[in-house]
């Protein structure tokens, strides 16, 4: 296990006051908060910053960490002695929003044995949260998918260790982005015979360049030729649930939105599918094609900018 220099992570001196630690934490939380940050490694950095703050802002944990970490440098090999933690009372929560499975091995082994496991009465385990990324088509078909999680578990020595766990879950059809699936009994184990918590999986759709969703409604683009837009007619369009035959109204312009009622994500009621027409010009790469464009210009004089005045 590698030693974590929490002072370096927060960028503060070892003699920093609680106010300095709080200021440093807030500054870094703004920089790496996964909800707003543009940094590539924001999520990982935020976990480290949360962990450092959980230790350094808690007087009990800070005192224990300071005593144990004397003389160690970041990433140096480290293992706590067997009597580690005696004389300290880690009564606070884990860190961040309490999700121990976000903790590093260092944090879990140093501070993971405190808290709830000392209760003598039955206690329900904590609920856990994870995000699951699925293809948009899953909203129509449903799917079975494997979810990998890091689960905190009590080792034989009373220390918390993180174990990889894989779950095969069935995702029902009709899901929308941001919805939560509840997997009963797959949270952290209960204490003294208490029931396990639940696992909540937040649905996220894999980015799709063709479609986006708003609840059950689906929005996309529909490329059409100039003659299809001008003359109208039946065409075959690709939708997330497969190809459909649809009619293009004559004299359609680029940007016109067509609604296919009930063709959005299934549900009660189902969503609608909105397709925005995108007029695509045939390339003018051959002399014959250029001749046709010239002929159009002669027979159909048209200035699309005549409405625009300086």
């Amino acid at each position: 296990m590698q030693f974590k220099d929490y002072y370096a992570i927060l960028g503060v001196d070892r003699n920093a006051s609680q106010e300095d630690i709080r200021k440093a934490y807030r500054r870094l939380a703004r920089k790496y908060h996964p909800d707003v940050s543009k940094e590539a490694n924001a999520e990982q950095m935020m976990k480290e910053v949360n962990e450092a703050n959980a230790v350094l802002s808690d007087p009990e944990k800070k005192a224990a960490y300071d005593q144990m970490g004397q003389g160690f440098r970041a990433d140096e090999d480290f293992s706590p002695p067997p009597d580690w933690g005696s004389g300290f009372e880690f009564s606070g929560r884990g860190f961040g929003d309490g999700n121990m499975h976000d903790a590093s091995e260092f944090f879990s082994r140093m501070f993971g044995h405190g808290g709830r496991n000392r209760h003598s009465h039955q206690m329900r385990g904590e609920d856990r949260h994870a995000r699951i990324v699925v293809d948009l088509a899953t909203a129509w078909t449903g799917a079975s998918q494997t979810v990998s999680l890091r689960v905190p578990e009590m080792g034989a020595d009373g220390q918390v260790v993180l174990r990889e766990q894989s779950l095969q879950v069935t995702i029902p059809a009709g899901i929308t982005e941001g919805q939560h699936l509840r997997v009963a009994g797959q949270g952290t184990p209960g204490f003294n015979g208490g029931p396990a918590g639940d696992l909540f999986l937040e649905i996220s759709f894999r980015p799709d360049g063709r479609f986006r969703t708003e609840g059950r409604d689906v929005h996309g683009h529909l490329p059409v030729t100039p003659w299809e837009a001008a003359l109208g007619g039946s065409i075959q369009a690709m939708t997330p649930s497969g190809p459909v035959e649809m009619r293009i109204p004559a004299e359609s312009q680029a940007g016109r939105k067509l609604r296919l009622k009930g063709r959005g994500i299934p549900g009660n009621p189902p969503g609608d599918l909105y397709l925005e027409l995108q007029v695509v010009l045939p390339p003018a790469k051959t002399e014959a094609a250029r001749d046709l464009y010239r002929k159009m210009a002669e027979t159909m004089p048209f200035n699309p900018r005549q409405e625009i005045r300086p």
């Binding site: 079975s144 879950v169 069935t170 919805q179 939560h180 699936l181």
Partner: peptide, 12 residues
Amino acid sequence: MTITCILTDDQP
């Protein structure tokens, strides 16, 4: 083993 999930919007 495959575990069936419950949509929290179906069973709030």
